[in-house]
Simulated scan of single mutants.
Amino acid sequence: MIYIFKTSVTKKQDILQLTPVIKKSIPYCKWSFDLTDCDNILRIETKEAQKEAIIQLLKENGFECEELSD
C-alpha cells in the first residue's frame, strides 16, 4: 500500500526527530517527506502498517497528520 499524508512537519529537524520513530515502528517500509509541497507530504510505501497507525504515530510525536484522498 502507498499512503500519502498532509502533515505539520515543516523542518529537516522534524524529520530527524521522526526518523528513529518511523524506523522502529514501521521497519519494513519506504518513506519520504516533501517539505517543498504546501501540504508537507509524507509518502509511505508499506505492506504492514495501517493508515490509522501512521496518523497516530505522528500525533503521538507532536505533529498533525491526515491522509490525502485520491
Rank of each mutant, 00 (worst) to 15 (best):
Y3M: 13
I4R: 13
F5Y: 10
F5P: 09
K6V: 00
K6Q: 11
T7W: 03
T7D: 12
T7L: 15
T7V: 02
S8R: 06
V9F: 01
V9T: 02
T10P: 00
K12Y: 05
Q13K: 08
D14Y: 06
I15F: 03
L16A: 12
Q17H: 13
Q17C: 00
P20H: 11
V21M: 11
V21W: 13
V21G: 01
I22S: 04
K23S: 11
K24H: 12
S25D: 08
S25H: 04
S25G: 07
P27Q: 10
P27K: 02
P27W: 07
Y28A: 04
Y28M: 06
Y28G: 04
Y28S: 15
K30W: 06
W31V: 11
F33D: 04
F33E: 00
D34P: 01
L35F: 00
L35V: 02
L35K: 08
C38M: 03
C38Y: 08
D39Y: 09
L42C: 06
L42Q: 03
I44H: 01
I44D: 10
I44R: 08
K47M: 15
E48T: 15
A49T: 04
Q50T: 10
Q50F: 04
Q50E: 14
Q50P: 00
K51L: 07
K51Q: 15
E52G: 01
I54C: 02
I54F: 02
I54V: 14
I55C: 05
Q56S: 12
Q56V: 02
L57P: 11
N61H: 13
F63P: 12
C65A: 14
C65R: 07
E66V: 14
E66I: 14
E66A: 03
E67R: 11
E67W: 01
L68K: 15
S69F: 12
S69L: 14
S69Q: 14
D70C: 10
